[in-house]
């Protein structure tokens, strides 16, 4: 009898472990991990500097130039190589690209709601281009989703280009 219980328990344990390891195939990552640490530190410094300008008027040309300088820096933000080529799982909000409303339309995911539509877009390393699988999910603007797949780096043919994240999704699921 005891033997049977031990056997049953070990089967359960094995099942649990197996399931766990299956879930681990795609490592869940957070958006902060996609920023290179040095760059993130620099941005933090810039923000504290920005605090000094808070009293400045919006129409002040100085604010304007500071803003566009910061904006340019964000648009050219470098990516972190840590997860390139690795299977990841990440949650984000959908920004659709094509006017075609189908399961195969490509989209971007961003870390916060309203990003790029009502509020300023996030830095380039906080945007992932998602290439959906053949049997994708019909998504619309600002839907929260889980995306699983191999994270890759999309680089331009010419050398001056900045590289960006791309995810060839194996699975897209609604965020729950």
């Amino acid at each position: 009898m005891k033997k049977l219980i031990v056997l049953g328990l070990s089967i359960c344990l094995y099942g649990f472990l197996a399931q766990n390891s299956l879930a681990k195939t795609y490592k869940e990552i957070f958006w902060e991990e996609l920023m290179p640490p040095d760059w993130a530190k620099q941005i933090e410094k810039d923000f504290t500097k920005m605090k000094q300008f808070e009293s400045m008027d919006d129409s002040d040309p100085k604010t304007d130039s500071l803003y566009s300088k910061l904006r340019k820096q964000w648009d050219e933000a470098p990516i972190s190589k840590k997860y390139i080529g690795k299977p990841i799982r990440i949650a984000g909000y959908v920004v659709p690209l094509d006017a075609d409303r189908s399961k195969i339309r490509e989209f971007l995911i961003v870390p916060y709601f309203g990003a790029c539509i009502h509020t300023p877009p996030p830095p380039a390393n906080q945007i992932i281009l998602v290439i959906p699988p053949a049997s994708g999910l019909k998504v619309k603007s600002m839907d929260p989703v889980w995306v699983e797949g191999i994270l890759t780096e999309s680089r331009l043919n010419n050398d001056m280009g900045v590289s960006a994240y791309q995810l060839n999704a194996a699975k897209i699921a609604p965020y729950k």
């Binding site: 648009d75 659709p96 945007i127």
Partner: peptide, 27 residues
């Protein structure tokens, strides 16, 4: 690079002498 869309949209919106608007068709 499709993920550069925000940056390009901002640069087009900022072309002061033309009063242009760039939209993302999907959105």
């Amino acid at each position: 690079q499709r993920s550069a869309v925000f940056s390009v949209r901002r640069q087009i919106d900022a072309l002061k002498s033309f009063a242009l608007m760039a939209i993302m068709p999907g959105v």
